[in-house]
Design a binder for these strands. Structure first.
Lengths: 216, 216
DNA sequence: CCCCCTATATATAAATC
DNA sequence: TGATTTATATATAGGGG
């Protein structure tokens, strides 16, 4: 009934940037809360899906925190195949491969390859649309953009299409890549169907566009 | 005002009992979702608090899923206070892989992963540009342009640009071709001792899928 | 299996004790 | 470091394609 005579007790949860929390105090608090939350989630997962789980965490201070269902050691050992997994005996060039890990690696590769495949497919679809869509561009519309924006737009389109091509080509030729990074920052959602571009040519570029994204 | 003429599309999230999900299908779905959620949480924790984390999960089916920042092995070894693993030479995510086959496997995985990342990044970037543009242009519309039209666009832009230049009449020396195609970036980066002091992103991995893409 | 959507259950950033 | 409270940000169960 009575209108809130006092200010709100809290602004409620705020969104925070995804980067190392500078304030050590706040960081510690967040660490405690999230660590607890993570373990809770792990517990639920193991119960709901009947899985074995092991989690090991080292805080910046060097303290170790662990969680295990049924326990850390058994899961870790199983993962590193210390406890032989009879069902897995892959071998390459005669040597035994380390089960769970290698097996997982294969799956991951396949997964990524699959995602890539999907993207290429989408890229082609878009290309098709571009080819068959005789849309007239009015001067009006053109004049609404400034050169900088148009240039950027064009470049991005070209670049994207170029990438699609390269990828398709590489795919056909059986690519042989060499890189050493393995970070996957999972994006919440893959941007709509943004994939297109082409034109082998690349002219100049006057505007001081912050084109670091162009280097791939 | 008008009462909802149609039924709700969904009853929304329902509370579930904390016990092994009986329906195998539902269980699998939940496992996928929650596993992803768990890894995401772990990723955030490692970033926000600069911690090292390792997670290993074995599904009921016996499949292994892992997450590691900087990688599972280092964290596990640190936890058990061991030096390099004795009877385990291969490392999935980072370093010395003594098996040529496994090594190749890893490279291919990295390559795919990298391309995928680039793809996602670009998708986001183009979206960003589109959004920051004073003139709203839907992706739909953008996708309707074909290369010929883009060429025209470019020509018009160049003309405009030249006009502006004339007007500004000044130093125009800054015209540099800014575009290059990438050609396999072989980074010999050694994810050795990652100093968590400046954690930018984390390592992550996971994903199932049964396929024998390679006859080992 | 993957993606999307909706409606709700949960996790948590902040502030305070 | 914990335990609470408040107001929001996120995670997800269910269901469809």
């Amino acid at each position: 009934m009575a209108p809130p005579q006092g200010r709100k007790k809290s602004q409620g949860r705020k969104k925070i940037e995804m980067k190392l929390i500078a304030d050590e105090n706040a960081r510690t608090v967040t660490f405690s809360k999230r660590r607890a939350g993570l373990f809770k989630k792990a517990t639920e997962l193991s119960i709901l899906c009947g899985t074995q789980i092991a989690i090991i965490i080292f805080s910046l201070g060097g303290r170790a925190y662990s969680f295990g269902h049924p326990n850390v050691e058994s899961v870790v050992n199983r993962f590193f195949n210390r406890n032989p997994v009879p069902n897995l005996q892959d071998s390459v060039h005669g040597m035994k491969l380390h089960s769970a890990m290698v097996n997982q690696l294969k799956e991951q590769y396949d997964q990524k390859n699959k995602e890539l495949e999907a993207k290429k497919r989408k890229g082609k679809e878009i290309e098709a649309v571009l080819e068959s869509s005789p849309v007239h561009i009015s001067e009006e519309r053109l004049n609404q953009f400034n050169m900088h924006q148009l240039e950027q737009l064009k470049q991005k389109m070209e670049k994207l299409r170029d990438d699609v091509r390269r990828m398709v080509a590489a795919q056909k030729a059986g690519l042989v890549g060499t890189s050493k990074s393995m970070n996957v920052v999972k994006a919440r959602s893959v941007p709509k169907g943004v994939d297109l571009a082409n034109v082998e040519r690349n002219g100049r570029d006057a505007s001081p566009i912050p084109v670091d994204w162009l280097k791939l």
